[in-house]
Design a protein around this nucleic acid. Structure first.
Length: 287
DNA sequence: CCCACGACCTGTGGGC
DNA sequence: TGCCCACAGGTCGTGG
C-alpha cells in the first residue's frame, strides 16, 4: 500500500477535484471491499458535499456537510483515478500508470462538476466506511494510533519510551501503528538504513543518542518521498495517474544484492524475513 | 509481551 | 509458450 507519503500524495491529488464539491452520483459496483460497505453507502453519499479531504496515518478522510466522515484505507493495492469531463488531462510530463483493469473498479464518485473519481483495488484489502465525525477519534481504527511521524509529538523521547524494555527489533516496532502511525515496510527499511541501525537489534538496547538521528531519518525520508510524489510500485499511482518518482531513490527496498548507498559503506543489501515481512538492510553499516 | 504463522485477495515476475 | 511458486505497499487473528 500506499504508505504515508503515497496516501498524502493521493490526498493532494484528489483535493482539488473533490474539496467543496457535491457528489452528484455514487456507485458501488460490489457490496464489499475488505469489509462490507455500510448499508445505504450510496444513498448517504449522494448529494453530500465534501468539505475537506484529510489524512490521518494511512487513512484518507472526506469530511462531509453532514454528520459522517467518509473514511478510506487503500490496503495494499488501492488506487484512485480521476477522469475529467473534457477528456484526457492528466498533468505531468513523464510516465503514466497502465490503464487500470475495469474489473477492479469498485467505487465511482462523480461530482456535480462532472469529474469522476474511481477507486480500483485488485486485492481488495482496502476499505471504506462512514463514521460519525464527532466520535471518529474514539473508533477502533483511530483510538489507538500513535503520533504522526511528521508531527512534533513524534520525537526521540517518544521513541525512547516506546522502545524501552522491548526485545523486538526497531523494524517490527516502527511498523506498529500504535507506536507511530503511517510507516510501512518500505519507509521503515529506508529510515533504518539511513540511521545505520540494525532492524534486528533489540529496540530496548538501542542507545538513546541514536534515537534523534533515527527520528530525523524517518522525517527526512517521508518528507523527500512526499516531495517526489510518492513511490509507485506496481499498483499505486498518483491520483491523476502520473507515477511517483521516489522509488528510484530507495537505498534498500527491493535492492537485494546491490551495493549499499550509504556514504563510505561497501556493504551489499541483504533481505531477511522478519515477522513475516521482507526486511531489506545493509549488514555492514547497520549495527 | 513475544513470536511464528496463516488469513484475506489478485496479479506479476522469475525459473524451468 | 506455459506452468508453478514465491512474493507484493497492510492489517487482523490465533495459538503457543
Amino acid at each position: 500500500m500506499p504508505e504515508l507519503p503515497e496516501v498524502e500524495t493521493v490526498r493532494g491529488g484528489l483535493a482539488p477535484v473533490l474539496e467543496g464539491q457535491r457528489l452528484a452520483r455514487v456507485e458501488a459496483r460490489r457490496p464489499d471491499l475488505r469489509f462490507p460497505l455500510p448499508p445505504n453507502f450510496v444513498q448517504l453519499l449522494t448529494g453530500a458535499t465534501i468539505q475537506r479531504l484529510e489524512r490521518r496515518a494511512k487513512y484518507l478522510m472526506a469530511r462531509l456537510d453532514r454528520e459522517d466522515t467518509l473514511v478510506m484505507h487503500l490496503g495494499m493495492s488501492g488506487r484512485f483515478e480521476i477522469s475529467h469531463p473534457q477528456g484526457e488531462s492528466r498533468p505531468g510530463n513523464f510516465h503514466y500508470a497502465p490503464d487500470p483493469n475495469p474489473k477492479h473498479a469498485h467505487i465511482v464518485f462523480e461530482t456535480e462538476a462532472g469529474v469522476r473519481v474511481t477507486y480500483y483495488d485488485p486485492r481488495r484489502f482496502g476499505y471504506m466506511a462512514l463514521l460519525n465525525t464527532a466520535t471518529l477519534h474514539l473508533h477502533p481504527w483511530f483510538a489507538g494510533l500513535g503520533p504522526e511521524p511528521l508531527g512534533e509529538a513524534f520525537d526521540a523521547a517518544h521513541l525512547k519510551a516506546a522502545f524501552a524494555g522491548r526485545k523486538q527489533g526497531p523494524k517490527t516496532l516502527l511498523l506498529d501503528q500504535r507506536i507511530v502511525a503511517g510507516l510501512g515496510n518500505i519507509y521503515v527499511c529506508e529510515a533504518l538504513n539511513r540511521a545505520r541501525i540494525s532492524p534486528f537489534k533489540p529496540a530496548g538496547g538501542i542507545a538513546a543518542k541514536r534515537l534523534p538521528p533515527l527520528v530525523a531519518a524517518i522525517k527526512d525520508v517521508l518528507g523527500e518521498a512526499i516531495a517526489a510524489g510518492g513511490s509507485t510500485l506496481r499498483d499505486f499511482a498518483q491520483a491523476d495517474g502520473a507515477l511517483g518518482y521516489f522509488q528510484h531513490r530507495f537505498r534498500t527496498y527491493d535492492r537485494e544484492g546491490q551495493p549499499c548507498r550509504n556514504a563510505g559503506c561497501t556493504g551489499v543489501i541483504d533481505r531477511k524475513v522478519q515477522a513475516g515481512r521482507s526486511t531489506f538492510f545493509c549488514p555492514v553499516c547497520q549495527k
